[in-house]
Amino acid sequence: MAEPVPARALEPVRLYGRIARMWIRASLAYPVSFWTMTIGAFFTTALDFVGVWILFGTIDGLGGFGLQEVALLYGASGIGIGVADLLIGSVEQVGQHVRTGSLDVMLVRPVPLLVQVCADRFQLRRLGRIAQASAVLAYGFGAVDWSPARLLVAIGMVLTASVVFFCLFVTFASVQFWTADSSEFANAFTYGGNVLTQYPLTVFPGELVKMLTFVLPVAFVNWYPCLYLLGRDDPFGLPAWLQVAGPLPALLLCGVAALVWRAGVRHYESTGS
């Protein structure tokens, strides 16, 4: 039975949607719990930015950036990790699936393993974080002198940020195929990367910034595109083309994530539980 290629390529997405929708329905079975969790998530993260705002009550700039500009950085990174967390945050659970043996159950279903692991326990309440980050980003956009090119870069920035965090989640979760549980180790890179990019990188030493550019490329999540949006020269004297190069490291990371995930699954298949 030859299926048209686009239909086959979309099949995993369709299945992801199915599984996710079922979890949403399951969580809506307890509406009070759902809404308190969602609103709770919104306020916890909202308070997070209030901290930055209070800081600006006593200082005028952070690493040479004003409050609205910091909001721009904060919002972009927050949306990125928020979207990644919403869509595939459950991949963190892979170690638990290995330990409890539920991975075996997933392996005998005709759905790609990554789709099943990511869609498992899909939590719509993670929208709370995205809502908060969007509000902060909207405020930050006030600092941008808009042009068509900048609009394009802004859209690209949000997409790149999501893809980069997406890949970091998958890559570091895959480590659990070998270690069974190292979600804290993974958090250091995913949520750690998010925390680092909430501030202008000018507050950090240049070596760290180079590392965040070429090794763990979270600087492309918001720092470089924001420099472009704000029309600034690179404070570390790095080339200007880096500011619009975001999609490139994002694609590279996709390759790395796919390889590491595959190697992890292969390792599991060859050791069992």
Binding site: L15, R18, V105
Partner: peptide, 20 residues
């Protein structure tokens, strides 16, 4: 161990398997 989804009613598990 179960191949069903722990928190879901049987009917939902079956429907999801139909799709899968």
């Amino acid at each position: 161990r179960t191949t069903l989804w722990w928190d879901l009613p049987l009917r939902d598990s079956f429907e999801l398997l139909q799709r899968i």
